[in-house]
Amino acid sequence: MRARRSLYLFTVPALLVIGLFFIHPIILTFDMSLTNYKGIGEANDVGWRNYERIFTRDRYLNEIWLTLWYTVIVVSALTVTGLFFAAMLHRLPLIRNFSRAALYTPAMMSFVVVGYIWQFLYSPLNGGINVALRDLGLGAWEQNWLGDPSIALYSVAFTQIWMFTGFTCAIFLAGFAGIPEEINEAGRLEGASSWQRFRYLELPLLGPSITVSVMLTTIGTLKTFELPFILTKGGPDGATRLLSIDIIDNLFGQYKFGFASALSIVMLAIVLAVAFIQNKVLRDREQS
């Protein structure tokens, strides 16, 4: 019994760190969200007014919806592309290491560099993509990639997918490495095709990797700020204005620290809710 108690004592330093550096700032942020604090001077209590504003204005509800939709697009695409490349590379051991490194390279680049490069590629005036389409005789497919509200969000999402496909691919490759070779061998002996082995043998065994990949990319994407900010600054006309961009705009553009804190708390609640539900569903699926 005494030994058990002393075991709990060992968790105290970790709990202190979590309390001091994670829980305490959240409490402070919540406290600030109930004020009209401008980042300096007095903070006057305004009750729930900031939250009332968030949930009664279409603008903020649209941003929440846009953030969730953006996450669905990016996470789905990252999971499918990562899985595709991992399955391919698992079957091509000769080029696996080189390709894995090449695919992972964009994820190691700075968001700022990636953002500016893609901004020039997407430019409607002599941008690389439109020029390439024109040169290939596909001029009719030219688009105002970042300027057309109906496709701007997908253009930004594509850049993020391009950047992080290598990341999910690496997770799935680790998952493939954990599948015993005997299982594939047995499949081959039974005459299963490559697709059948992937669908009925490998995919179910990749359950834990899928959980890890989906969880990490979901949390990361819900908080996405850099790429939409650099590529479009939330435009055109709010078409890519995710919650995180409005938080920064309210903080440093308009000095509404209290309101930005309320938005941050809403964002935290969304991230926690999505992560909790996702974790539950994926874990249940793994066990079934």
Partner: peptide, 8 residues
Amino acid sequence: PELQAGLD
């Protein structure tokens, strides 16, 4: 206008 609206 449509081409330039969202130009950085």
